[in-house]
Amino acid sequence: MSAAEEVVAEGHEAVEAVPKRAMTLGTGTSVVVLLLLLAVPLFAKNFIIFQLTQLLYLGLAVLALNILTGGSGQFSLGQSAFYAIGAYVTAVLMEQFNVNYALCLPIAGVVCFGAGFLFGQPALRLSGVYLALATFALATAMPQLLKLNFLEHWTGGVQGLVVTKPDAPFGLPMSQDMWLYYFTLVVTLAIYLFSVNLLRSRSGRAFMAIRDNEIAASAMGVNVALYKTLAFGVSAGITGVAGGLSAIAVQFVAPDSFTITLAIQLFLGMVVGGVGWLPGSIVGAAFIIFVPNLAEGISKGLSGAVFGVLLFLVIYLVPHGARQVAIIGQQLAGKLRKN
């Protein structure tokens, strides 16, 4: 192609710039949400507690994607692959090597961080649609890789692995589900705080500089290659912990639970929650857990169509996701205070 045909793209950013202060919740709101999360299981049935646990670990996975996309501006359809690695590392360590479940999670996180960091290397050359295709390839390959024969000794092949649910320690008078919920809550909170601080730190500012303008960021001395791969690594690590938690909560891992559908769900969760708004991750997770059930309840035969229509409604009303709702709420509260 001759130089005359080169196209110049101006300031066309795929991910909008979210200032770092707008990425978190105020103190008051945080305390209320935390109290709710602590209190609700005390009054709920076991199945609901299980669903809340699910909400937390999927929220964690959405948060991880949010750091990658909303933070550093890279798009990924391959999150399900890291989720699968995390789940399998946890399951294999727990069942084949009798490692304590609480120890498995950090190991899963570190393994996935490594995997993400390595995958980030070739991905450096790609952006936008090309990066989406590369990560997509990873997501489609993962279930097949887990089924490979020479891994079957550990992974159980197509059948997968059954994981034992841990009991509450120290003789605490709690059901297994409730203990697991609080355990997940603690892990989630720790990672949430870590992520908020990460985005406020020097590294977080580097991520955002890259997201907003890669060339300008590198001109200011940001090591673009390092921070892009780092964002991939951190995101994969958190996704891995989420995957590990899911393995413990569901008590089962199998290759076909980690297909591209999961990656698409996580993506939808991020959009619904608001790209770049970390607390929105939990809202997004709620959307991907409960709305398909709701759609099934409205019409069995047309559940996919109902889901699609509901999704359209959400993106029409709030194109910026739950973040937009939060901003509107804040403005309303501000007005009330003035009056």
């Binding site: 991910v15 996309t69 993506f267 939808l268 996919g304 169509a305 229509v309 999704l311 993106i315």
Partner: peptide, 18 residues
């Protein structure tokens, strides 16, 4: 935003398929 549009494509996918 672009990503919202992509979510719209996924919604359209679900509607037509179902």
């Amino acid at each position: 935003p672009v990503l919202t549009n992509v979510a719209g494509f996924i919604a359209l996918f679900a509607i037509i398929n179902s």
